[in-house]
């Protein structure tokens, strides 16, 4: 126990400050919903992440948002276990046809008002996989998308800026 406490003390707080993105950065993030969102969310958002066919690269970086460097919860952004608790669906991957109904049902299960963020190049445009017998391609081909965070995979910083952009006043 002492070793454990010692290590915690030695490590200290490593969390880094992150700036809310500026207007031109928001433009680059492709945010179609504007500032009224913040009122709806009252300063915090609950996210349900849905892997609809990703290679799991995006998941690794979304995971990193919870590590002590980024600690995204301090901004009131937290990940929830059910779409019924969520304001935002964070969808990765080209949507595989085998996941199409599951994604549609997850979307339907999310209460209004809700927003969909497509994360990664595959979710944005189909990426390396495109539209085939097995893949529907971009998330927008299946459910309405409000915002796109591109990258293969997007870095935690890009993800963070994108999500803070949702809450910018």
């Amino acid at each position: 126990m002492l070793r454990l406490l010692k290590k915690i003390l030695q490590t200290g707080v490593v969390t880094e400050a992150c700036k809310v993105p500026k207007d031109d950065e928001l433009e680059a993030l492709g945010i179609q919903i504007k500032r009224h969102i913040d009122k709806q969310f009252s300063g915090s958002i609950a996210i349900r992440q849905v892997d609809a066919g990703s290679c799991n690269g995006c998941e690794l970086e979304i995971h990193a948002l919870n590590n002590p460097y980024y600690d995204i919860e301090r901004y009131g952004i937290h990940f929830v276990a059910s779409p019924r608790h969520a304001d935002v669906l964070l969808v990765t991957g080209p949507v595989s046809r085998h996941m199409q109904t599951a994604l549609l049902r997850t979307y339907e299960a999310t209460p209004n008002p809700k927003w969909v963020v497509a994360v990664g190049d595959c979710a944005a445009c189909g990426g390396e996989f495109g539209v085939t017998y097995a893949s529907c391609g971009a998330v927008a081909n299946v459910i309405p998308v409000d915002m796109v965070i591109s990258g293969c995979p997007p870095t935690p910083l890009a993800l963070m800026k994108g999500l803070l952009g949702l809450m910018v006043r």
Binding site: G53, P94, T132, A134
Partner: peptide, 21 residues
């Protein structure tokens, strides 16, 4: 197989660089 994306099928016809990607 929920994330079956047809990787084997879309690999066909690619050049080496594209297959590596």
């Amino acid at each position: 197989a929920y994330v079956h994306k047809g990787i084997e099928k879309i690999a066909e016809g690619r050049n080496p660089e594209s297959l590596a990607r």
